[in-house]
């Protein structure tokens, strides 16, 4: 409540009015900042502990505990994880699957949304609802038939089975989002192009696509990250070392008795580096994208 009263004082430009209220506000605002920072530190703590112990030898860990600084930089954990999981293979698998899904998923979303948002196909409300529901389905309700289907067409343990499945699942969301965006596409542009005699196909690629490019790139980043983070379907569909993705490789090492603290932490660290790097590169586009998802 002290906080609530202290906030009453109006904003900066009225600051000079009354030193008294400014003092009250001063104490309260530092308290609020401290609480907010504390929440941040609690959230960061597991990352910190992981960093400390990824480069600490097992002896050092059992002698000095998880909170001490490593007495020397110990890289055997990183090396052990790197070699045991054949990390470069896993990294390539993750990149390949996610990138192909991002491109194909965005393409499929664009085609669907072109028909729904601009073509205003009859029954489009139902179609969009169907896509939205498809996106919400639990993957467990699809997995066994998908698993047997992949086997029967010779795609068992194939990355293409995962790529096809995720292209469709991600484009369900993409269609929903792009359809509402394309629903507000400036009709004058379409009219002008149609009067010039452009076909629907040409309008799609020469009028709609260039204007939608920023939205499509946000969508592709989304698809990439979501596919990168997927666990259940890759776990079931990709059964051997040479096809698996990073999260599966890390999780499958987990039960291993040989996994000591530095190896686990190094593994976690190495596995999250690509995600963090990707996030930092696309941070601005991404925050805009998270928002785009929220405004329907």
């Amino acid at each position: 409540m002290a906080v609530a009263t202290s906030v009453r004082a109006p904003r900066l430009r009225l600051r000079h009015s009354g030193i008294d209220s400014r003092y009250r506000r001063g104490a309260g605002r530092w308290l609020v900042l401290a609480v907010a920072v504390l929440v941040g530190l609690v959230i960061l703590a597991p990352f910190g502990i992981m960093l400390l112990n990824a480069v600490k030898s097992p002896q050092d860990y059992s002698a000095n505990g998880p909170l001490s600084l490593p007495s020397s930089i110990y890289l055997d954990g990183v090396v052990a994880f790197w070699e045991r999981t054949e990390f470069p293979v896993k990294l390539w698998n993750s990149v390949f699957i996610s990138a192909v899904v991002a491109v194909l998923g965005a393409l499929l979303s664009l085609l669907n949304a072109y028909a729904i948002g601009i073509g205003r196909v009859k029954g489009r409300l139902w179609i969009v609802t169907l896509f939205l529901l498809a996106n919400m389905l639990p993957q467990e309700a699809l997995i066994y038939p998908l698993f047997t289907m992949a086997q029967s067409v010779g795609l068992s343990n194939s990355q293409w089975s995962v790529i096809i499945i995720f292209t469709v699942i991600q484009s369900a969301f993409g269609t929903y989002l792009l359809s509402s965006v394309l629903g507000t596409f400036p009709p004058a542009l379409l009219e002008a192009a149609a009067l010039d005699g452009a076909s629907r196909w040409r309008i799609l690629w020469q009028v709609v696509f260039p204007i939608m490019r920023p939205t499509l790139s946000v969508l592709m980043i989304f698809f990439f990250i979501w596919t990168w983070n997927e666990f259940f379907i890759p776990l079931v569909m990709l059964t051997t070392n040479d096809t698996q993705t990073i999260p599966i490789a890390l999780a499958s090492l987990q039960g291993d008795r040989m996994m000591d603290a530095p190896t686990i932490n190094a593994g976690t660290l190495v596995s999250l580096v690509p995600a963090v790097v990707f996030f930092l590169i696309f941070q601005r586009t991404l925050t805009r994208g998270v928002t785009a998802g929220a405004v329907k």
């Binding site: 499929l108 085609l111 669907n112 729904i116 699809l142 289907m149 469709v168 699942i169 484009s171």
Partner: peptide
């Protein structure tokens, strides 16, 4: 709008194969 239906075709086929059919089979 009928002229736009072909653009829905790849999506419709993909959905039928990857979501609709497996859901019913399940």
């Amino acid at each position: 709008w009928v002229g736009y239906l072909p653009y829905l075709l790849p999506g419709a086929v993909a959905f039928a194969v990857v979501i609709g059919y497996p859901l019913l089979t399940n």
